[in-house]
């Protein structure tokens, strides 16, 4: 049996709302440690991997590891029907592994709403990626910035063109674009520390200068999720997709992997 409860408007609900513009169906794995979700966008440019540790929920129970495909848009639609103050329970029982049950309970416990959502096949939404601690060392540059700044950069650039070039070296981190009507270049002089301050742009890992071209549509989606958190961490490598990460509590995370564009 798997069962988690959360208050309406909790961070999981906010994240599910924010990933809707990229993701239809997601693969969810539950273990005693927490709730993880993986999904690919329909064009296979963005892979989303998130992990919510059990302690971020109001209550959490998972007797046996389970894996299921969930139609995220349908789930979000159901969750939107909850009222302020409701406690939301998501439950899968061992006897019935064809659907999940979502329950809303009003704060005064006088009203309960039960809904069943059919599970779907989401096996094609899995990708084999290395353990993160191995992978992080493969990035040529990793920096952190306030997520509001990241969103502002993406919005400012998308006025001019569909693409952004992100360049990182020891001295500067820049976001630039060039279109028919002009060009924009936003440069940040980074701090260099392992312990980034919340309000600044910090270069935490640097093995050499690197630049990548990315479609701003995907970057704006990543930025939308990141604004649920204070800081965003961005990793660049010429051999890996761009990584955009937000931390959830101590052990949790949301990671986007975005395939860059390449000049032929």
């Amino acid at each position: 049996m798997f069962e988690l409860t959360m208050a309406k408007g909790s961070i999981l609900q906010g994240v599910l709302e924010a990933i809707l513009d990229l993701v239809n169906v997601a693969n969810v794995d539950c273990s005693s440690k927490g709730f993880s979700l993986q999904a690919l966008d329909t064009e296979h440019v963005v892979f989303l991997s998130l992990f919510f540790p059990s302690e971020v929920f109001r209550s959490y129970r998972c007797d046996e590891d389970c894996s299921m495909g969930i139609a995220i848009a349908d789930m979000v639609d159901l969750l939107r029907a909850s009222n302020d103050g409701d406690i939301i329970t998501i439950k899968v029982t061992d006897q019935n592994f064809e659907d999940i049950t979502i329950t809303f309970e009003s704060p005064d416990k006088t009203k309960t709403t039960d809904m069943d959502l059919q599970l779907v096949d989401a096996r094609s939404h899995r990708l084999k990626i290395s353990e993160w601690h191995d992978m992080e060392s493969e990035y040529q540059a990793i920096f952190c910035m306030p997520s509001a700044q990241f969103m502002l950069n993406c919005k400012s650039l998308s006025v001019i063109d569909d693409d952004v070039v992100i360049r990182v070296n020891e001295e500067v981190i820049s976001f630039s674009t060039k279109g028919k009507s002009g060009c924009v270049n936003i440069s940040h002089v980074p701090n260099k520390t392992d312990n980034p301050e919340k309000a600044s742009v910090t270069l935490t890992h640097m093995r050499g200068p690197v630049s990548l071209t990315l479609n701003l549509r995907y970057m704006k989606s990543c930025a939308k999720v990141s604004t649920l958190f204070d800081q965003v961490k961005i990793g660049l490598s010429t051999k890996l997709p761009l990584m955009v990460e937000c931390k959830i509590a101590e052990k949790g995370y949301i990671r986007y992997f975005v395939a860059p564009k390449i000049t032929e």
């Binding site: 690919l40 440019v45 990708l127 084999k128 990626i129 890996l240 992997f257 395939a259 390449i262 032929e264």
Partner: peptide, 14 residues
């Protein structure tokens, strides 16, 4: 014009 790559270039299916 730069061409969009897809993730299968970097990761294999599980």
């Amino acid at each position: 014009q730069p061409k969009q790559q897809v993730l299968s270039r970097f990761f294999s299916p599980k």
